[in-house]
Every structure is written in C-alpha cells, then in structure tokens.
C-alpha cells in the first residue's frame, strides 16, 4: 500500500482499525518494561533518587519538539502537496503535543525544585519550551475559531511552519545562552555522557512514549476524519431540509396563484 492509497480516508480508517490494537499492545508492553527498568536504575551520585524523574521528563521533552516537527511536515503537506490527510494529521497532533509539553514543563519543574532550589527560572531553555506550549494552545484555539476546516488548515499550517523556528532555539538554547538547564547529554557530538544504567531505561521510555504518541495520533486522526464526515452529512441534511421547504413553499404559492386564476 503506497502513501497515495493512504490519502483515501476510508482506506486510512480501514488500515488503522487493523493496526491500532497491535500498536496499543506494543506501547503497553514497552512502557511496562521501561518503567520496570527505570525503577531498577541506581541512584545518581549527585542527584540521588530524583534522577528517576529524568525517565519521564526527557521523553516528554523530546516528544514536545518531535510532535511539532510532525505537525510542520504535515503543514507542508497541506500547503505544498495538498494531501487530504495532512491537515487532519496536524490538527490531531496538537492536543497530544500540548500534553507532552505540559508534562515536560511540570516534571522539569518538579525536578528543578530539589536540584536547583527553584521550580522555575526565566532562562532560555525553560522560556522557549513555555513558548512552545503557548503556541500549541494558540494553534488549538485557531482550529476551534474557524468553522471551515480547509480555511483553518491553511492558517494553522502557516502558523505551524513559523513556529518551527522555535525548535532549533529550544535545542541549542543550552549552548547559546547561559542557563540553569544542563547541556545535551544524550544526543550530542561524541556520544552520550550517560552511563548505560541510566541510558537504557531512558531510551526504552523514549521509544515507549513515541509509540504512545503514534497510537494516540492515529486514533485522534480517525476521530477527526469521522468528525468531518459528520459535519458534511449534517450540511447535506440541512441543505435537503432547506430544499424541501423551498419546494414546499414554491408549490403552495403555485397552487395559490392557480386558485386565484
């Protein structure tokens, strides 16, 4: 099955109905293994047991940017290739991305208090992620504000692509500015600085959360396709009612004029 075949919403619904149970099962299994490995991970020599917050904070932080990346590609699909499912994908991803970003901010804050002595600091990394969260909310508000999905899609696509400028700012903020946040320790030139006992559970949790995103995203895309189907059928129903009442009024008027003659 090619990408063109998937452009057909009915085929997409049929395919995802088959794939989703497997994805959900794989997510649950991987999440269970990841949580078990996280629980077994040793305490850090400086941070103690609070290092365990890393196993949920980091996957959520990665996904907050990854989801915006997915939405940016989908936005290109809307503006350049006009793929029928592109704006469905972008719209469905926004609330999921917002949730991951919220969790990254919240768990980061809860990790920061015992380690930095503060829940929040207006430094480059924290502020740029907060901006990302606000952009997710803005995008969701835009989708709700415009009734016509195709008009909303174009405006949202432009906003998403403009917002993508924030992604490298978030990534390199720890290198460009002096921040409380530690520099990159996993995805960096020269390899990870993390010990295997932390790296393995972290990667397992990252894969599990990515699978969770894929599962939720496909399910949310199905819902969006069904919502649009409901909308078009309701419009069809409304136009039928309007047409039949128009015909009814027309025939009554005709009868009245025939009677008068």
């Amino acid at each position: 099955m090619s990408l063109i075949d998937l452009a057909n919403p009915t085929r997409f619904l049929a395919l995802t109905a088959r794939v989703l149970p497997w994805l959900a099962g794989a997510t649950v299994i991987l999440l269970a293994i990841g949580l078990y490995q996280s629980a077994l991970a040793p305490d850090d020599y400086q941070q103690g047991a609070t290092v365990k917050i890393m196993f949920i904070h980091v996957p959520n932080a990665w996904l907050s940017m990854f989801v915006w990346g997915v939405m940016s590609i989908a936005s290109l699909g809307t503006l350049v290739w006009r793929h029928p499912l592109a704006d469905v994908a972008a719209k469905a991803a926004a609330p999921i991305g917002a949730s991951f970003t919220f969790l990254a901010l919240l768990t980061g804050s809860l990790w920061g208090r015992p380690m930095w002595g503060t829940y929040w600091e207006w430094d480059a990394r924290l502020t740029s992620v907060l901006i990302l969260f606000l952009m997710y909310l803005g995008l969701m508000a835009l989708w709700r504000a415009v009734d016509d999905p195709s008009r909303a899609a174009r405006a949202a696509a432009v906003l998403t692509l403009v917002g993508a400028i924030n992604l490298p700012i978030i990534k390199f903020s720890v290198d460009w500015w002096n921040t409380l946040h530690q520099p990159a320790s996993v995805m960096r030139m020269g390899g990870s600085t993390l010990d295997k006992s932390f790296l393995i559970p972290l990667l397992l949790m990252a894969i599990a959360f990515t699978l969770l995103f894929v599962t939720l995203h496909l399910a949310a895309m199905r819902n969006e396709i069904l919502r649009r189907r409901v909308r078009s059928l309701q419009m069809m129903q409304a136009s039928r009612v309007a047409f039949s009442s128009e015909v009814g009024t027309g025939s009554r008027q005709e009868n009245a004029s025939t009677g008068a003659a």
Binding site: T50, I53, T107, W111
Partner: peptide, 15 residues
Amino acid sequence: LGPYASFIVTSYAAA
C-alpha cells in the same frame, strides 16, 4: 526514593 520522594511520585502520578 530518599528525601525527595514526593517530587518523584508527583511527577510519575501527574504523567
């Protein structure tokens, strides 16, 4: 979970 157990548990519970 040491002296900061409440922060760790709250993080996992919130997620």
